[in-house]
Amino acid sequence: MTRRLNPARIGIYMLLILFAILFLVPVYVLLASSLKAFAEVQDLSKLWRLPSGLHLESFRSAWFGIPEKGLRGLAPNLLNSLYLTVPATIISSMLGSLNGYVLCKWKFRGANVIFPLMLFGMFIPYQSILIPLTQTLAAIGLGGTLWGLILVHVVYGIPITTLIFRNYYAEVPTDLIEAARIDGAGILGVYWRVIFPLSLPGFVVVIIWQFTNIWNEFLFAVTLLQKPELQPITVALRNLAGSQIKEWNMVMAGALIAAIPTLLIYVLMGRYFVRGLLAGSVKG
């Protein structure tokens, strides 16, 4: 079926473009502010104006810092965020995949009770568990370390990753599993030979979700990691703004830098994201 450009289709494009513009308004403010000089960004009556020139120094100071002024740049923190986000995302996705597999295809007695109990974990307000969390991590020797924060993100990632994979695997036909069983595969064999190779779209969804959340997470990171050389980029970003005079141009530049990895993932994996959502979350 070919589609000509009739009035209805023009209307659709107009609406899409209109919404795109509305969505981009804050992005424009963000970008324009990051390119402005301090005095310009401070003058809110000039909010909509283009920057008077390309003041790239806010990007430079956000990235490298200004050592003589005691200001640290974001560069090392970007690396910390990767150290944190990549392992935490991978581990929680693997756990979610295994849990989802077992809870969907190997329902042991009580599995139907355990799953909702697990799921409940994603709904708690995290402020309320900060203090026991810090004390527990300190007690097991993980206080103030990246490992501790990775553990935290893995644990609180279990509910959502399990949910997505469990729903995803529900679509995998039982016949496939039966066939592998007849070939003599055990619980792990089935996972490895049948389930895992089918899991890629599920992994894409989980990775995007976990990567975005862990990358942007602030509360745990700021509480659990004290050493500046370990802090992820969200905390460093917040620290670009002082407590008295806030150089928002630099903070905005920093925010754009911080958003690049997530954005890259959206652009590169966007298609698979929708495909994976389709496979995973359609069922309640």
Binding site: A20, F23, P26, L30, N216, T234, A255, F273
Partner: peptide
């Protein structure tokens, strides 16, 4: 474009 806002930190 529609997904982009999810990528930016709430703080900003």
């Amino acid at each position: 474009i529609y997904l982009f806002p999810m990528a930016i930190s709430f703080v900003v």
